[in-house]
Nucleic acid binder design. Structure first.
Lengths: 270, 270
DNA sequence: TGCTGTCTGTACGCTACCGAACATATGAGA
DNA sequence: TCTCATATGTTCGGTAGCGTACAGACAGCA
């Protein structure tokens, strides 16, 4: 039953103080994607919807940090110190069972935020947050987030809406885990992830995807081979590319469409 | 694949105006449980935590309604008109797939509220809310809930904490659906439901439980028989009784304990 | 008391997915 | 260019849960 998870990477950048705000512009972060454009908070949809005035007061507290594959943003029942607003990174919220098996609860990309529990008041959760696609995120200190949230402005409004979008995604994951095949779930996962990146190609192994879905690596291999035969995707060692998005949507269960539609409706984005 | 759901019951009580506030004391509601004590908003934990002052302003807007097995409190993508705070009723939030199969996303009893999306701002959800244990709930009109929530008082605080508890339960359902056996899931579901009632006996069919878990009725029959053999539960046509709670906890996966612990931590109850 | 609808028990073949073991092939780094 | 860690391919038996079908048994009601 135990499914091996990527060994957590200690990303020294994540330990730096806010003083080292420009760290991301230095080599340590630059390796992630050389061609990546200069980062900007508004690349995150939640931050992007804030009026200029709100953003002005917030921006001095936002710290750009590079997130790398395997970085743990939080672990079960440990106090979160920051909320993360991904711009190009993608984070997986997942739960690891007592027997060591894992499964993703929800993904978080540039449409969302990691650290809901900071403003709901719980501060910790039984789940973990792991980076599965390297990139950048802006982070905000715990106390700052709480302060901003309690201003009852646009940030509170959009975070509450995002919370509902998150609940929708988690709910859909629950139903999907119950009723849909691995191939359908793989299609759903690829589509949801595709919506969070710009490139159309994923840099990840089938083993990692298997951990996300909570299935065996072999099951992912079989499903991926099937999708490749149909011509939806193509893949090679450590890479997956979506070739035909329309066909991939046909291979997915409705869960993808439900989540996407709700996310668009609630946040006005995708 | 299609799993038949109980045909939605049109509960005339739910259509009455606030003027018929005392409806619950009349025969229509009385049948539910003759021995049931007079209802009181503080039987719901969320309402129960409110300071007297907050409660005073709220209580005039709270309407006691009887909820009966099969009542639908909301359906996918339709505007909610009320938030419900169960006292003795239990509601199932569930999703019905495109092929007609259903599975529970979370249960809501006297520890919670049905209608989160009213204050998050979405107003609708892709899921449904169906009563699976008859009883009572206090309800609050949509606009009243929003007004109260935006006061930024204790109600907002406790609702945000409840939202996190809900996310925990949904997340755990997702992981449980992926990794645990029907017998473990049945045990978890019975325990969670047991925490929401006072009697120790459930009035429900195996078919209904199967719809909740999203599995076949026969799978529930087998799991229930197994639990009965062990001596955890006993059941007869339309009734399930928990005989030995400790043993039932041993038959459950850790998901029950995780949800219960988090609920207690976040709400200080259950 | 007897009828009847509904709830529960049982059986059968089937399929998807699991667990384990091992073969092959890729590509990053020496 | 070669090496080797690691990613992917393949196989095989096992099993949990599904879909279907039907039998028995309970309980509400006439």
């Amino acid at each position: 039953m135990p499914v091996s998870i990527i060994p957590p990477v200690l990303n020294p950048d994540l330990r730096k103080s806010a003083a080292a705000n420009s760290a991301a512009a230095k080599p340590k972060g630059a390796f992630i994607l050389a061609a990546e454009k200069a980062q900007n908070p508004s690349l995150n949809y939640l931050l992007g919807t804030l009026p200029a005035a709100d953003m002005a007061s917030l921006s001095e507290h936002l710290e750009l940090v590079p997130l790398r594959l395997g970085d743990m943003l939080y672990e079960p029942n440990t106090q979160l110190q920051h909320a993360y607003f991904p711009t190009s990174a993608i984070v997986s919220l997942h739960y690891v069972t007592a027997s060591g098996a894992s499964s993703e609860i929800s993904g978080v990309g540039n449409e969302g935020m990691v650290g809901i529990s900071l403003f709901t008041g719980g501060n910790t959760t039984p789940s973990s947050a792991m980076v599965h696609t390297s990139g950048y995120a802006y982070r905000l200190e715990r106390s700052q987030l709480k302060t901003e949230f309690n201003r009852n402005g646009k940030l509170q409004q959009i975070l509450l809406r995002y919370t509902q979008a998150l609940i929708t995604q988690v709910s859909q994951t629950a139903a999907c885990n119950r009723h849909h095949s691995v191939e359908q779930q793989l299609s759903r996962w690829l589509l949801l992830t595709l919506d969070r990146i710009t490139s159309g190609e994923f840099v990840l192994t089938q083993e990692l995807v298997a951990n996300m879905l909570g299935v065996r690596r072999e099951s992912v291999t079989a499903a991926a081979a099937s999708l490749q035969d149909i011509g939806c995707i193509s893949y090679r060692r450590g890479h997956i590319s979506v070739i035909n998005r329309k066909d991939l949507e046909k291979c997915s269960c409705e869960c993808y469409a439900v989540v996407r539609k709700e996310t668009q409706r609630l946040l006005g984005v995708s």
